[in-house]
Design a protein around this nucleic acid. Structure first.
Length: 549
RNA sequence: GCCCUUGUAGUUCAAUGGAUAGAAUGCGAACUUGCGGAGUUUGUGAUAGAGGUUCGACUCCUCUCAAGGGCACCA
């Protein structure tokens, strides 16, 4: 990675300057390197001189001059020049030769280009969606879907071992409520077509061989049966349609059946972290920074959601040995964070749990807000959305936005704009490359690939559009690295768009297949490298890479 | 009342404390007889308000205003 190389150069330059007493000793945590927006400021840039100037109270320009002298001495072939600009920026310009060589590097590495090793094979579990099995997935609770899925893909690329999990809350009050709803008795809560169907199926006197059929009068059992059907026949299908594949579907009821929840209570009792009050058993979570204590066992003897969740997390950390667990929750679970964090800390797994909240989606119909409620049967399901727009468009739409935004979703607009969507723009770039490759007229123009890399005269690639395209290509590993660190997944669609734009410009300016064999070879190599990277980006985003459109 | 998140072109969204705030879409203009006219170039237009910190603020701090969420022995 170019950025890594520059980083090392700067660190060495600082050390050298210190050795020669041109700069005093001091500590810096991180050298920040960015891409300047303007071309004249180079390809990479650092503000390190300003950072140091704060510590040393010395003029940043002076520091920049000292460092740049050291950098120039050390400078390697990949840099064409280094410039200093007021008030103390050091700007780096990448050499043509280096860029040209990178094309071959990408072709050699293929799909593995931008595979990183920052994960060191540590195990991360990402749990997302995990909506209650009481109805179809709505746009509200599925926002975490594309996000969690893609974050997992990023981690994998960055060298972590990943598990994607869905936690099924098939236990407790909402299951009872579901049961009543299915039985359509006085305590019914949920409404909708699916409830009517479940009502028929679960109450109908069907053939005795059917596990789920038959008359079921007990509301809790009816609820459990309904939950299983909802997961297996509704949610799993929707999830698949969204292009998400889970490694594990974990059922909460298992924890209760196997006594894991009781074990948690015993464990906390032993650690003297519980007490009785008002007939309930409380967890002293406030000892771990929670704003209040939490109930583990209610007055009526049943366990709270939290108790089960702590048991589940013990399973994650101790049985499955995850080094890190990331839960993606809706903003309505904000109040539960400190309770679970306290629980994991009591278990001795502090700092291994990350909880990311996603804000909600406001559904608009013709500009008017729609209040959603599963209980009232008013909601917009993922399935309905996928009838209107493709999974590609849906995923891209959600991925583009930071998880923190309260986003507005106008269905009519989404449908209308799905035809002008940036996804098409990006996919079109891919299709264009395919079409170029398909049209190679002369068999002498070999298509370079992994097994057979000819020696394209890459030094011919010197048009600004060609060099710019290569610069985009080599940013890919940086995108993976940054996203694995800060979880800002919207960087990915942004990058895909920039890359596609760079390709379209190249296409306009540089004819790929021409009479000139050497040019054709070199540009084919570049087109192929672009195809490789685009394909990887599509894979990370879970979006299809069409050969034709 | 307290806590979390958010407020950026007409609209939907970007921008590790950096240099002239970037796209898409809308509206306006132009290019493209050539590997796909689903492409390219270009004009228009925005940091909710008031203070503060900083060489430098959309970004950090304080207050005000506005939106969503949370403050359960529900999940």
């Amino acid at each position: 990675m170019v950025r890594g190389k520059i980083n090392n150069l700067i660190k060495k330059a600082i050390k050298n300057a210190q050795k020669e007493k041109e700069l005093p000793k001091f500590k810096i945590d991180e050298v920040s390197i960015e891409h300047p927006e303007q071309e004249k400021y180079g390809d990479y840039s650092t503000n390190i001189a300003m950072q140091i100037s704060k510590i040393l109270k010395k003029d940043p320009m002076e520091i920049a001059i000292i460092l740049s002298e050291k950098l120039k001495m050390k400078s390697e072939k990949f840099l064409e020049k280094i410039e200093i600009v007021e008030p103390g920026f050091i700007n780096f310009f990448i050499s043509k030769e280096y860029l040209q060589k990178q094309v071959l590097d990408i072709l050699k590495k293929g799909e593995k280009f931008s595979d990183l090793d920052i994960g060191k094979k540590k195990k991360i579990q990402i749990e997302f969606i995990s909506a209650n099995p009481t109805g179809p997935l709505t746009i509200g609770n599925a926002r975490g879907g594309p996000f969690g899925d893609v974050l997992g893909n990023i981690f994998k690329k960055a060298g972590f071992k990943i598990e994607k999990a869905y936690y099924v809350n098939d236990f407790g009050n909402q299951i009872l409520a579901l049961g009543h709803s299915v039985l359509k008795d006085k305590e019914a809560v949920y409404k909708g077509k699916y409830i009517d169907e479940l009502h028929k199926r679960i109450l109908a006197r069907s053939n005795t061989r059917s596990v789920l059929g038959g008359k079921e009068k007990d509301p809790y059992k009816a609820g459990q049966k309904a939950a299983k059907i909802i997961i297996d026949e509704i949610i799993k299908k929707t999830v698949k349609k969204m292009g998400i594949k889970y490694d594990e579907w974990f059922w909460e009821s298992q924890l209760h059946k196997t006594g894991k929840v009781d074990e948690i209570i015993e464990f906390l009792k032993k650690k003297k972290l519980v007490y009785k009050k008002d007939g309930a058993l409380w967890f002293k979570s406030s000892k771990y920074g929670d704003n209040r204590d939490r109930v583990l066992v209610k007055q009526d003897g049943s366990k709270t959601y939290l108790t089960g969740d702590i048991a589940y997390h013990r399973y994650k950390f101790e049985k499955k040995k995850f080094n890190k667990v990331i839960n993606i929750w809706g903003a309505d679970h904000y109040g539960d964070i400190s309770g679970l964090k306290a629980g994991t800390e009591a278990l001795g797994h502090k700092d291994k749990l990350d909880i990311i909240l996603h804000q909600f989606v406001t559904i608009l119909r013709k500009g008017e807000k729609q209040r959603m409620s599963k209980r009232k049967g008013v909601y917009f399901t993922i399935n309905e959305l996928l009838d209107e727009i493709s999974s590609d468009v849906m995923r891209f739409f959600f991925l583009q936005k930071s998880i923190n935004t309260h986003l507005n979703f106008d269905i009519a607009l989404a449908k209308e704009q799905s035809e002008k969507n940036p996804v098409y723009y990006i996919q079109y770039a891919f299709a264009r490359i395919q079409s170029i490759l398909a049209k190679i007229p002369n068999p002498k123009f070999q298509i370079p690939n992994k097994s057979q890399i000819p020696n394209p005269k890459l030094e011919l690639l010197k048009h600004p559009s060609e060099l710019n395209l290569i610069k985009q290509l080599i940013k890919f590993p940086e995108v993976v690295e940054d996203t694995a660190k800060d979880y800002q997944v919207q960087r990915l669609p942004q990058y895909a768009f920039d890359l596609a734009a760079a390709f379209h410009q190249f296409y306009r300016d540089c004819r790929v297949v021409s009479e000139d064999e050497n040019f054709s070879q070199a540009r084919l190599a570049l087109a192929l490298a672009t195809k490789t990277v685009l394909k990887s980006v599509f894979d990370l985003m879970g979006i299809s890479a069409p050969k034709k459109m």
